[in-house]
Computed example of a mutant assay.
Amino acid sequence: MRFFRLLRSSIPIFLLVSIACSPEDGANGADGLAGLNCHDANGDGINQDSEDINNDGQWNYLDCQGITGDQGNDGNSGTSCWDTNGNGQVDPGEDINNDGNLNGLDCQGMDGESGESLEIMTQYGYITLNLDGTRPDDQPFENDATFKFLPVNGNFQLFYNHVEAIDTPDGTVHDFVLRRYISTPGITPQDTFVEISFSIVDLGGTDELVQSGTFWLDHYAVIGADNKYFTISANFDMEDNTVLNFQISNVDYNLETMHLTFDYSFTSTDGDQNDTLHNLDISGSANVWLLEDIG
């Protein structure tokens, strides 16, 4: 019975607590203070004449810009391009074009010498080169190139692009010498070239015979697709026992035009000589116009 009375007395308290904890929206807080304009130097919110910095009768962000600074000192005067000694005076020798005026025209360099025309240097034909072998790192390779440049210097015509016919008891012997460069030669030709020389008896006749032959490949870089390379500088002679099957074939020479075509091929078995450290097959063709010295 006491427990029942206690329970009845606690119910109002529970209801009171439940009602007191129910959520309700609070009242809005007070508005914050208005911000200061950047031109309001003393922060009183009043536009004052001293705060209209640019004197345009308005108070805004344009009055918040700083005062323009003083102009800096002028830099030193530059040196004219014709003033070669930089003393600011006109000196003998500075009027390069001798027109009586000192200006930009006196700053131009001398005209360079005209280079040799590609048409002139390639007009006498070309020699092709085919290499088939194994690189010094034991990787197989094939390489092709065309050598087509010849300097116009007279010495090169005399020694490296000529034919000489010599009458002998065995018949007329034609001595051919031809050299071509891989890239454009200047006054001094580039190092990389191929040179072929051979002698042939009874040219075009039934007893045609190649008596001697040499092949020279100098400073030629064999560059692989993997950007690895090695260089060949070697001279091969058909009489050398390390040179097999040296052949000059399909020779066609026009006595009037001095146009010469032929094929060549051989195998070098001396890997130290051909710079591959392995056997190397060398072949190609020539399509050239030769010259005859009559001086």
Rank of each mutant, 00 (worst) to 15 (best):
H174I: 09
L150G: 03
F266C: 02
Q48L: 09
D25C: 06
M258E: 13
V243F: 02
Q65M: 12
A165V: 08
I294S: 15
P151S: 10
L16I: 14
D44W: 04
T134D: 09
S183Y: 08
N274D: 11
L36F: 12
Y124E: 07
G69K: 02
T79L: 11
W82S: 05
V243A: 07
A165W: 07
F198W: 06
Q139D: 02
R180Q: 13
F149Q: 01
D31G: 10
G284Q: 05
H162Q: 15
D44K: 07
D44P: 05
R180F: 05
S114N: 10
A165T: 10
G154S: 14
F4K: 15
G205K: 05
D144Q: 12
S285C: 01
N274E: 03
N161K: 01
T206P: 12
Q58Y: 09
L6W: 12
L217C: 03
D175R: 15
M238E: 06
Q71S: 15
V163S: 07
F266E: 01
F159M: 10
F230S: 00
H278A: 04
W59C: 09
D240H: 04
N245G: 06
D70P: 13
N103Q: 02
T68R: 10
S268K: 02
F147K: 00
G295H: 09
N241Y: 05
F141K: 00
A30D: 13
D202Q: 08
L178C: 13
T168L: 08
Q247M: 08
T257V: 03
G26N: 10
I13C: 08
I120M: 07
K148G: 09
I232W: 00
H174A: 11
S10N: 06
D272L: 14
E24T: 11
T188S: 12
A221Y: 04
Q190T: 15
G72V: 01
L277S: 10
A20R: 01
T84N: 12
T214H: 10
Q157R: 13
Y181I: 00
Y126D: 06
L291H: 11
T206S: 14
I19K: 03
I19H: 08
G104A: 03
I19C: 13
E116I: 05
F156V: 04
M258A: 11
L280Q: 04
A234H: 01
F198L: 02
S212E: 10
L255H: 06
V201K: 13
G43W: 05
W59T: 00
N55E: 13
N241R: 11
I13K: 05
N245R: 01
D191T: 09
H39G: 05
C64V: 12
D106H: 02
F14N: 03
T261W: 02
Q157D: 13
